[in-house]
Write a protein that binds this DNA or RNA. Structure first.
Length: 561
RNA sequence: UGGCCCAUGGUGUAAUUGGCAACACUCCGGUUUUUGGUACCGUCAUUCAAGGUUCGAGUCCUUGUGGGCCAACCA
């Protein structure tokens, strides 16, 4: 894979340099480190694809490591959901790890730090400590407990561990430099007291290590060679390295933290807080609502793992601010679904057609190709009869030459069927067309090979036999936000940009072959778009989500007029 | 009145490490088509600015401009 002609991203360049400098390829190791306090979303997918993609490229192991150091926020349910989502994306982790597996080691190392006079127990309030910490432009000052004796520190830390203190009474801090230009080096807290049950260690501990102390050391324990995180952790690197300096042994791999810019997707938000707000305020129905940018939402929407991986692959990875247009994501679903989704006919906005010269009561089954992109997909039979539905938008009494569809006096091809001609139509009191009377050319049947069947007519319409149609609930999804970057406006709340038409529920009429469809089945409704059977479906009634519409150049032509 | 990071078409990412600015998406135009889909072809940049080094700069240096991050007992 490493001889792939594809251009390398800057992380890969770093790895190649390390390799060139003598780092052993067999020592390469990566990790994906989610905190189990929420659901994975499209932004995480980039990170997952980066890390696991590196694992594939270099045949290196990738661990799934849960960064579970804050029992106040973390739950087993999230662990399960995260594992399911990573798996669904198509990745296998080498080993499943938990930062909590290392609590004892971390504790032992903390004792060493204290003994070396590199850590101390601070007994001030967080407000007092914040005051001493200074600001980005002002140096901090040493606090009153900074020079406690090693013995006292040892004793207090032991008592913290033994549960002798309330939350907030004491913390353990690394003794680094209160005057550092890097705020994170101003004696960062490494342990706090938390009387909370942990989803894995239960009540074994009442002190919990902080992120900075935990993450790098966990990388070291796992011998992760390249620890990749997002840009906001860049200032943490100095601390990451400082902590590593305290424990690193010479013959072991020293992990290297490198930072990349998180990918931002247009027309959505991705912060856990905002996603939660959408759920709680019932803007969406759940975390896996098909409008959510969560992996579970995308899955339910009908996205394929391949399309998400291809998307992640083409957007790449870099260090600059970015806003990736959803159209790129949509391109990748269409690209994949075009290859794999069986074609099927469904009418979503029906107009009744009566074929007046077709015998009443007659029905015949026509052969329809399942997927023109995939011969192996075979064919199926669809029923045809005297009364069918077509889309309202496919008929006009009069129209100019650009309108390739059905109009009075003109012909059109019914997909997989006959050529029909519109003769007349009937309207309701308001003037709406409610039925069109057509005649068909009996010899024009698709695939019959007759001269008539080979006639070129400009338009081809999808249709469904009324008598045979299955009715189903169709959920038409659109972008959740009308603004491309809803949460970056200084004067407006992201909720102001919620698209009121992000979901339209209608009734659709489907060809009967869909009867056996199951949740997560993906299909193309010809000329309409890609759809996916929803888990809300019952044996009585299908519920079908629109994943994404087909590209629609007709809509563009109309927009221009 | 600090420190650090970043800047390449409308969008995202490349550029063999100083040698013809490339790929994908979008947009627009066209060819093919029993999906106005797919496929295929074509158009769209003086690389934030100004200086400097060099035979040669997107790449190196300086300054400026613009954007981002940093003061949670979160990760």
């Amino acid at each position: 894979m490493s001889d792939s002609p594809k251009a390398l991203n800057f992380i890969e360049h770093i790895i190649e340099e390390d390799l060139a400098k003598g780092f052993s390829k067999s020592d390469l190791r990566f990790r994906f480190p989610p905190e189990p306090n929420g659901y994975l979303h499209i932004g995480h997918a980039s990170s997952i694809c980066l890390n696991f993609g590196l694992g594939e490229r270099y045949s290196a192991p990738v661990n799934l490591r849960f960064d579970d150091t804050n029992p106040a926020k973390e739950e087993q349910a999230f662990v399960d959901a995260i594992k399911r989502d990573v798996h669904w994306l198509g990745y296998e982790w080498n080993t499943e790890r938990y930062a909590s597996d290392y609590f004892q080691q971390l504790y032992d190392w903390a004792i060493d730090l204290i003994k070396q006079n590199k850590a101390y127990v601070d007994s001030q309030s967080s407000e007092e400590m914040a005051l001493q910490k200074g600001t980005p432009t002002e140096e901090g000052v040493d606090g009153p407990y900074r020079n406690r004796s090693v013995e006292e520190n040892l004793k207090l830390f032991q008592e913290m561990k033994d549960g002798k203190f309330q939350e907030g009474e004491h913390v353990l801090r690394a003794k680094i430099d209160m005057a550092s230009t890097n705020m994170l080096m101003r004696d960062p807290i490494i342990y706090r007291v938390l009387h909370k049950a942990h989803h894995r260690t239960n009540t074994d501990w009442c002190i919990y290590p902080m992120y900075d102390w935990t993450h790098g050391e966990s990388d070291y324990i796992e011998q992760v060679s390249h620890s990749l995180c997002t840009l906001e952790f860049l200032p943490h690197r100095e601390l990451y390295d400082w902590f590593l300096d305290q424990v690193c042994e010479e013959n072991k791999v020293r992990p290297k933290q490198r930072e990349f810019a998180r990918r931002n997707l247009s027309h959505t938000v991705v912060s856990k807080r905002k996603l939660l707000q959408l759920v709680e305020q019932n803007v969406v129905n759940s975390w896996d609502d098909p409008r959510m940018p969560t992996i579970s939402g995308l899955r339910r929407r009908g996205y394929t793992p391949e399309s998400i991986r291809n998307f992640a692959d083409t957007i790449g990875i870099a260090k600059r601010e970015n806003l990736i247009d959803v159209s790129l994501l949509e391109f990748h679903v269409r690209e994949h679904l075009n290859k794999i989704a069986p074609r099927v006919m469904a009418v979503l906005d029906p107009l009744k057609i009566v074929i007046t010269n077709y015998p009443e009561g007659k029905e015949e089954w026509l052969t329809a190709e399942n997927n023109p992109e995939d011969e192996a997909a075979g064919s199926r039979e669809v029923p045809f009869s005297r009364e069918i539905y077509i889309e309202k938008a496919d008929f006009r009494e009069e129209a100019n030459k650009k309108f390739f569809r059905l109009k009075l006096g003109r012909e059109v091809r019914l997909k997989n069927g006959y050529i029909i001609k519109a003769e007349s139509c009937t309207k309701d009191e308001e003037g709406n067309v409610i039925e069109v009377q057509c005649t068909y050319d009996e010899k024009s049947k698709s695939g019959s090979g007759t001269e008539e069947s080979l006639r070129k007519v400009k338009g081809t319409l999808h249709w469904v036999s009324i008598k045979h149609a299955l009715t189903s609930e169709i959920r038409l999804y659109d972008r959740l936000f009308t603004d491309e970057s809803p949460d970056t406006h200084k004067d407006k709340d992201f909720m102001d940009f919620v698209n009121p038409e992000s979901l339209k529920t209608i009734t659709g009429y489907l060809e009967p072959s869909l009867k056996a469809a199951k949740p997560e089945d993906r299909i193309q409704f010809q000329r309409l778009g890609y759809f996916c059977v929803d888990k809300d479906s019952t044996s009585e009634k299908l519920v079908i989500n629109r994943t994404v519409g087909l590209r629609d150049s007709w809509a563009k032509i109309q927009e221009k007029n």
